[in-house]
């Protein structure tokens, strides 16, 4: 029996190491905003925490498959009922794992996100730029109230944001539920008719849809016929370029 346990542990460790090597690969999308780094960190942390749990089950089931098989079904195993310390230890370990994940990175990460008192938004309280987002079937409209411009699928055809500025999106919908999502920023908030929802991001790198398709404003909540086409490109530019773009839009 001890031999079997040792074997399983060895397989477990090997699988975990192999899995950890896979997890070090670059499988996450481009980093576009401050929160992207936070997300990537939490994602990787959870992946590394989940990996041993996963490989434990894989090692155990896989090893049992090869080591304990019999041909005819005639012999019977030892009559173990598990009425000893094992279940209690298991319960203690799994419960403490669950509670750990619950607190960190769960609740602590949530607290960070909700630090902004103005609602669902998170990040810094003040915003350098406010963009009013309106979802409708099947496109987006972005209004820059301070700049006095509006872009949509006809006019401008892309959402342009300055780098290193905190942007607060105020999201609305005129008809059905949509969801405003920019994969590069790892942020998403539903657009609900009749209420305004908020999403605060701080782009940290320039980039555009042409270079990386994670820079796009995508509808993530099924909204009918052309849901899959409800996409507008996003371009993050330097401050000066942004000002120039605003002037250019105004001129139009």
């Amino acid at each position: 029996m001890a031999r079997h346990i040792v074997n399983i542990v060895v397989i477990w460790v090997v699988l975990t190491v192999l899995g950890a090597l896979v997890l070090t690969l670059d499988y996450l999308p481009v980093i576009g905003a401050e929160y992207s780094e936070e997300f990537d960190g939490i994602f990787r942390l959870l992946a590394f925490m989940g990996l041993p749990v996963l490989t434990f089950v894989f090692a155990w089931v896989g090893y049992s498959f090869f080591a304990f098989r019999q041909r005819t079904g005639e012999s019977e195993g030892p009559a173990w009922w598990g009425r000893n310390w094992v279940p209690i230890a298991w319960l203690a370990v799994t419960a403490s794992l669950a509670i750990t994940v619950m607190i960190y990175p769960g609740l602590t990460g949530l607290a960070k996100l909700q630090a902004d008192p103005r609602g669902y938004g998170w990040g810094e309280t003040g915003a350098d730029l406010v963009v009013k987002v309106t979802g409708f079937r099947w496109s987006w409209a972005f209004e820059y109230p301070e700049q006095g411009i509006t872009v949509n699928a006809v006019q401008g055809r892309e959402l342009v944001l300055p780098v290193d500025a905190t942007v607060r999106f105020e999201v609305n919908s005129t008809d059905v539920v949509h969801s405003f999502w920019i994969p590069a920023f790892r942020m998403k908030i539903d657009a609900i008719p009749g209420r305004t929802t908020y999403m605060v991001v701080k782009p940290v790198a320039t980039g555009s849809y042409a270079e990386d398709q994670a820079f796009r404003a995508q509808c993530a909540e099924l909204c009918g016929l052309d849901h899959s086409k409800m996409v507008l490109p996003v371009r993050v530019v330097e401050r000066e370029e942004f000002e120039a773009w605003v002037q250019q839009m105004k001129a139009q």
């Binding site: 155990w60 079904g73 769960g106």
Partner: peptide, 28 residues
């Protein structure tokens, strides 16, 4: 969030039962 994570604890007991039964069994 907390309650959803907590549901992994009872689910874990199902795994305990399955893995414990497999171990040293005579798998047919």
């Amino acid at each position: 969030l907390a309650l959803t994570e907590a549901i992994s604890i009872p689910t874990g007991l199902i795994f305990l039962s399955a893995l414990g039964t497999l171990f040293m069994g005579r798998l047919w």
